[in-house]
Design a binder for these strands. Structure first.
Lengths: 343, 343
DNA sequence: TGATAGAAGGCGAACGTTCGCCCGAACGTT
DNA sequence: AACGTTCGGGCGAACGTTCGCCTTCTATCA
């Protein structure tokens, strides 16, 4: 418990009124160079730091940003959370803000939590991740006109600032890449249909197939929650199809599904890459070490973080961010799992 | 921006003084049941929430806990961060606290950040992760007598509250397990010698070997930063040793090294499990999906989080946590990578 | 019946800032 | 010589609480 040093202490030492010290610190009001120097000296000597609580009370601002996301179950984890949080905090600190954490499933019952946080002045604004259709958090924040920015989209008719990664373009790139490798029968490991992100990504697959003039056999599309097992069994079943219907490659909406797919193909005696192409999404740390290394799509997390924070701060200051909606492309990292190599 | 509702508004509606409302909310002072009911009703109707900034100013407490850790580089990530943060926040919220994030490398230059945070009253206390010998953050917090609790140990002569996972016991269990499987020549993939955690874990290896009467060939111990590549090349070199010196199993201090080791063994034509045993540490999500699934040590993260928060809050309230130092055992999750199976 | 204790609740002050207003001195202008 | 302007800096007030003290009222008891 370091002893409290206040404006008054600094003022006493510098021989001025404490309000004058405040003026120097905040750089408004006019103060002569000599007394200003005196005051800075006193601040230095006493190790004074402005009390953010008091300042917050006066200005009714906290300098805090709430970050909400839906935690994954322990057996899945979130491989990119570390990097993303670090990026967000970095961006926030560059603007003088700090980050508070709210890892709660985005269900309607949790909405009270946010209402409470808003009313109690806990945070100046929110960054909302793990968004989905009809997201109750977004609905609430819009209704209360509380500053926020979302990582991800929600209902198209809702008007709010967001940054998203173009999952459609990403999956399209992956699909086109497999087509380029000579694949014609390409299957899709997708998510359940309540997922906003999943729907977006799927679209990229259909677009690429259509553009290439390839028909999609309905049996080639499998939808389930993301898990290794789901990817594995889906591919197992696909490999039992007749030769002319059997897929030779799989586009997966995330890395976990892709890894399951890889394993199933290998267990069936296929060489992943040469015989059977697989791509993932997220470029989780470690997928480059799989055997073969997994082709995947990398999200520009740092950019996402910076834009999100910048947008949110605009909103906090009562301004309209411009542009209000940002969609950034992911980058396809091609590795051996999707490359035919010598033929 | 929801319109501000203050104590005075509630008081006006309930027909009492605003201080009385405060009494009701905080449950001290005596108020008749009828007026109390009136007041609660008014609170409900107006949707009043106490302004935490004002309360914080008055009580000089923020209800905020700072969480510091060293982020990993993007290609490594931190697979258990999601679960751990969720656990910590859960524990903190159960006590009415929230979590603020400080992902900064624990270097001396960063110490100013913490000094500033302490002096400006940003947080009531810190949880310090990624600890190491001579950790400047811990040194500073001890010197300033600021409340904190550490996830991990530091210099033994420093007296401060911490929770740690018993890496020594964990690696010992792993080593003993391999010995039980019939291995005699067991190698160790360790970290550089400046790592506190690494030193602790290594000890478990030596202890188990000695206990079993097995000599450790100095060539069996390889130390480096954690990476897939390091694990891979180390095993490659080991496999080139003469038959009587060649290890038949590897204990790795983390999963990444273990995965590298597995891959090297497989690329050398060995079957991981039957021919060559491998164990990791952390039980990262996904390692159960490797082929073969990786034996690893799982940390009791939820317990760690709960004890850390409980300890810290004791300190914040000026009490001495009891016990002050907690060491929890990890759990060995045995999977195929370390099991000989049919022989 | 009068003293007394306890319950109910009002009131002033303080936490550490920021903000706007005011005043005096110095200076320049007509 | 009188007046307006500008600069430097002081001062009161307010942000929304909590805390301790004080007053009033009612019930209790000797």
């Amino acid at each position: 418990m370091p002893e409290r040093v206040t404006l008054k202490d600094v003022a006493a030492r510098a021989g001025v009124s404490y309000q004058t010290v405040s003026k120097v610190i905040n750089g408004n009001g006019s103060v002569s160079p000599e007394t200003e120097a005196q005051i800075w000296k006193a601040i230095e000597e006493l190790g004074y730091r402005v009390n953010v609580t008091a300042r917050g009370l006066r200005k009714s601002a906290t300098g805090l940003i709430g970050y909400t996301w839906a935690p994954n179950p322990p057996d899945r984890g979130n491989p990119i959370l570390d990097q993303f949080l670090t990026s967000v905090v970095g961006a926030a600190e560059a603007h003088g803000y700090h980050l508070m954490l709210f890892p709660h499933p985005p269900v309607i019952e949790q909405v009270d939590v946010y209402k409470q946080l808003m009313r109690s002045g806990r945070v100046d604004g929110f960054i909302v991740a793990s968004t989905n259709y009809d997201d109750p958090r977004i609905r609430l924040l819009i209704d209360e006109a509380f500053p926020f920015a979302a990582f991800g989209r929600s209902n198209p008719e809702w008007d709010f600032p967001f940054v998203d990664v173009d999952g459609c373009a990403g999956i399209r790139m992956a699909t086109e890449h497999l087509i380029e490798q000579g694949h014609r029968a390409i299957a899709l490991l997708a998510w359940p249909d309540h997922s906003r992100v999943g729907a977006d990504r799927m679209e990229g697959y259909y677009a690429a197939m259509q553009q290439a003039g390839l028909d999609v056999d309905p049996a080639w599309v499998h939808r389930s929650e993301s898990s290794f097992q789901a990817g594995y069994t889906a591919v197992q079943r696909w490999l039992q199809l007749s030769a002319e219907r059997r897929p030779t490659a799989v586009v997966a909406l995330d890395d976990t599904l892709a890894i399951g797919a890889m394993r199933a193909a290998m267990d069936a005696g296929l060489r992943v890459g040469p015989d059977f192409g697989v791509t993932g999404f997220d470029d989780a740390p470690g997928v480059q070490y799989l055997s073969p290394p997994l082709t995947s799509l990398r999200q520009p997390l740092q950019q996402v973080a910076q834009r999100l924070v910048a947008m949110l701060i605009e909103r906090i200051h009562g301004r309209e961010p411009e542009p209000k909606q940002v969609i950034l492309p992911p980058r396809l990292i091609v590795r051996a799992s999707s490359v035919r190599g010598e033929r």
